[in-house]
Write a protein that binds this DNA or RNA. Structure first.
Lengths: 128, 128
DNA sequence: GTCCTTGCAAATAGTTTGCAAGCCG
DNA sequence: CGGCTTGCAAACTATTTGCAAGGAC
């Protein structure tokens, strides 16, 4: 793993992620920071997201387009196929047993659980 | 949903998927069928995979690159970050409770559970 | 001064789409 | 014959990379 120097951009990106509940994509973050840092480039966003994932400060959530989360604690996500919203399901926990996998000889690093369907908001909107 | 006519290509693609344990990507399937159907195009593979997903005959598994599975029963996957292998964990079940989500107002269509880490083979290979 | 970081543009990878020709029913 | 299906090439989207200039320590 590479040494990292302090970088204004990296902290900006992290701050956006930390202060957001929307699990933004790289593009989202880029748009969000355009005002504050007009010279910022999308490549830098991607590069720093990769650094942050590598460092474990953030998490990459595999959807159609990768989304990111500054809450690195294992928790479950719900992806709404209507509005592309990605929601935390903090109150739910799935009792997954990594030890069973380890007994089978696997080394488990992560577990992504993503429910897919339609969120309450979109259901309501559809009914109208 | 569109009406579908019988198509040789579609059944070929489905057959590859049905007869494979590797959860192939579109590219895999394409390469696999090149010998049997040299005129087949990658676009056709993608188009038919989408049809099959739409029909519910196969499942799309979101990894970095989408992988497909003709076993549409809910089951857990393990993705090896070393060899890109995608394995079924049939013996494990995660008691996921969609009803808890439905009580919250969500409409749940799918649940993808993907463990990530290193598979036994790669662990063995690394040690040598 | 070293070497990490950045912006830019170009490159790449995965996937989708327009179109004209072909094929099924 | 109508309209689904196909191959081809071009388009598109998400992401990565090469490079030279700028910045941290």
């Amino acid at each position: 793993m590479k040494r990292h120097r302090h970088s204004e951009q990296r902290e900006l990106i992290y701050k956006v992620l930390k202060g957001s509940k929307e699990h933004p994509s790289a593009e989202h973050i880029y748009q969000n920071l355009k005002e504050v840092a007009p010279s910022l480039s999308l490549a830098t966003v991607y590069r720093n997201l990769n650094f942050l994932v590598e460092e474990g400060r953030i998490t990459r959530i595999p959807c159609n387009v990768n989304r990111y989360d500054a809450n690195t604690a294992e928790h479950i996500h719900f992806f709404c196929t209507e509005c592309d919203g990605l929601f935390d399901l903090d109150n739910l926990t799935i009792p997954f047993d990594a030890s069973a996998l380890e007994a089978l000889g696997y080394e488990v690093n992560r577990c992504d659980v993503i429910f897919k369907g339609i969120c309450p908001n979109c259901i309501k909107a559809n009914k109208q």
